[in-house]
Write a protein that binds this DNA or RNA. Structure first.
Length: 568
RNA sequence: GCGCGGGUAGUCUAGCCCGGUAGGACAACGCCCUUCCGAGGCGUUGGCCCGGGUUCAAAUCCCGGCCCGCGCACCA
């Protein structure tokens, strides 16, 4: 086990779930500190991707009905039976392989596949035989309601909940594009063999933004903010670049401004959260790597002890999902987009003459008249029209109608918006922050472990420590701790062991500041603030403490700005 | 899912080959000491992954499972 993992477990950041029953791969518990860190990450994400956009956050069920994933295409991509060659180890989708080799449409069940393999003595190309067929169904199934119930799935991504509710969300935004809808929540994938510790989980936390735009307007009004940011890019041909986002768009490396905007924003977010810039890059998915719904996708990748790992996916999902849900639900999920100027179109239209139609066609006259009105004509002098009424084709000659020219105003069109989706793996980002922050250095000739979290990310922000565990120091320390907590600062108090030992404890969990109550405190109501990274201390008045700490915690200012250096 | 190697206090580890009282270090907790960076003293808590088998006796040998690491495969 790595030294970091050992610390994370020992100090209560995270550990494996179900430990007392032997554990289960692919699940972790967040302990007090890990949970605190992830919550801070979520709040920072909200600042960037909800508050700072024309966007809202919603929350939809993790249990979904089957229809959702039949429409989205996940059911098809997830419920396959696979077979593995015992000799060469190749894995195939059983139904595809059987179709290809035997031209049989096989049922996608383990029993059916097994029977076919045995009956036809199906072998791998290499000559090896296949082992037991198995599911590689990456969605967890469940049943809803009593008895056999209705088939349900645990969602493999949070996004679908947003697409399903699109009509309501569009109304919320009063029908106007662009807008974003975010969701932070759990998603589930029944991985075949989750490994790599916390990197591949069966239950994980996603933060996703679905940003809906007009298909012809993949731009963003705030793009200028990031246009000159230099980013590390690896395109799908493995070309590497270090260029500004503006240049990347101009040169066509990134397909459009909106993708570039979210790449830029994602980068700023990750840096603010504590990912190291030199261990961050954006890599474009290769053509065979993209999910079934995406036309283009850029991953933010972080360099960790597991190599480069995907921590964010930024995909152009186009209108794929909405189109699919329109198709399967029959609901209208389009957006009416008004033109700036209404377009005037000259149009020919049939005007039926009911006085003549009535006596001839009797009861059918009304239906015929309606059909005539809807008939598209392009010849003013048309002689006859064939309309269909109740399945009967009726020829109507031009004595029963007139063709007139109308000028029609078209005010807009119905479009299916495209969606750009930045999708964040919160567990992986949390872990990467921990790896990128964990360091060892030397203080007074002794090695120490220190977690250099960004101050605003630290789960424990301040520790209040009496220099000696004597009543008069303890009393003041507890008062200060209470004062800080009342001010909304996450504060811990610790009086056990020597002062140096306690500094080390808080260094290890990334607490940026320690407040020490010493002899001088008792004389003049001042305390020292000790900085985690430099171990420098300044002395400030207790009255000023809350303000000073708040300013320090929200910035990267040096503590020496706030008082005299006590110990260099 | 396959192959190889592992699983001993909170953490790291000795013992396993060759069956017979499970030992250490660090951490944690309490008391003492202590005027700023893992000081010291005394004391305390806590362990053989789970199930089955062999045996008078299993951490140790055998079988099965679970978990961890590595390689292959998988990761829309």
């Amino acid at each position: 086990m790595s030294e970091l993992m050992e610390m994370l477990i020992r100090r209560g950041f995270l550990w494996q779930s179900f430990e007392i029953y032997g554990g289960m791969a692919g699940f972790i518990d967040y302990g007090p500190l890990g949970n605190g860190l992830r919550r801070r990450l979520e709040n920072l994400w909200r600042e960037f991707f909800v508050i700072n956009e024309r966007a809202v956050e919603i929350d939809t069920p993790t249990v979904n009905i089957e229809e959702v994933f039949i429409a989205s295409g996940h059911a098809e991509s997830f419920t396959d039976v696979a077979i593995e060659c015992q000799k060469c180890g190749k894995v195939f989708r059983a139904d595809h392989y059987i179709k290809e080799k035997l031209n049989i449409e096989a049922d996608c069940t383990i029993e059916a596949v097994k029977e076919i393999i045995e009956t036809y003595d199906l072998k791998c190309d290499c000559g090896g035989s296949f082992g037991e067929p198995f599911h590689f169904n990456l969605m967890f199934t469940t049943s809803i309601g009593p008895g056999k119930g209705k088939k349900g799935y645990l969602r493999p991504e949070t996004a679908q909940g947003i697409f399903i509710a699109f009509r309501r969300l569009l109304d919320y935004f009063r029908g106007k594009l662009p807008f974003g809808v975010a969701q932070i929540g759990r998603a589930y994938r029944n991985e075949i063999s989750p490994r790599q510790g916390v990197i591949r989980l069966r239950e994980f936390n996603q933060a996703e933004l679905e940003y809906f735009v007009h298909p012809a307007e993949k731009t963003h009004p705030q793009f200028e903010r990031y246009a000159n940011d230099v980013v590390k890019l690896v395109d799908k041909f493995d070309n590497e670049y270090e260029i500004t986002l503006k240049e990347a768009v101009d040169k066509g490396i990134i397909a459009h401004e909106l993708l570039a905007y979210f790449i830029g924003k994602t980068r700023r977010f990750l840096l603010k959260a504590g990912i190291s810039e030199d261990k961050l890059r954006f890599r474009q998915h290769k053509d065979d790597e993209r999910a079934h719904y995406a036309v283009d996708c850029w991953d933010a990748e972080a360099l960790t002890s597991y190599g480069w790992i995907e921590i964010v996916g930024i995909a152009d999902r186009t209108d794929y999902d909405l189109k699919k849900h329109i198709e399967h639900s029959g609901e209208d999920l389009t957006v009416f987009v008004q033109f700036k100027e209404p377009i005037k179109v000259k149009k020919l239209k049939i005007v039926p003459d009911l006085k003549k139609l009535g006596p001839v066609y009797r009861k059918k006259a009304k239906a015929i008249a309606k059909a005539l009105e809807e008939f598209e004509v392009n010849d003013k002098n048309i002689e006859k029209v064939i309309v269909e009424v109740d399945g009967e084709k009726i020829e109507v000659s031009n004595e029963f109608f007139k063709v007139e020219e109308f000028e029609e105003e078209i005010h807009g069109e119905k479009i299916i918006p495209h969606v750009i989706e930045p999708s964040f793996g919160l567990d992986r980002i949390t872990y990467t922050i921990l790896e990128h922050s964990f360091e060892k250095d030397t203080v007074d000739g002794e090695e120490r472990k220190v977690l250099r979290l960004k101050r605003w990310m630290a789960p424990v922000q301040v520790a209040v420590l009496p220099l000696l565990s004597k009543d008069e120091f303890i009393k003041v320390s507890l008062e200060i701790a209470e004062m800080l907590r009342n001010a909304g600062i996450y504060t811990e108090y610790d009086d056990s062991g020597s002062i140096g030992r306690r500094y080390r404890r808080f260094d290890e969990i990334g607490t940026p500041f320690c407040i020490t109550v010493d002899h001088q405190t008792l004389e003049d109501r001042t305390v020292t603030i000790r900085d985690r990274d430099t171990t420098k201390q300044v002395r400030v008045k207790i009255d000023r403490l809350v303000d000073v700490l708040k300013e320090l915690l929200s910035s990267e200012k040096d503590i020496t700005e706030f008082g005299e250096i006590f110990r260099a």
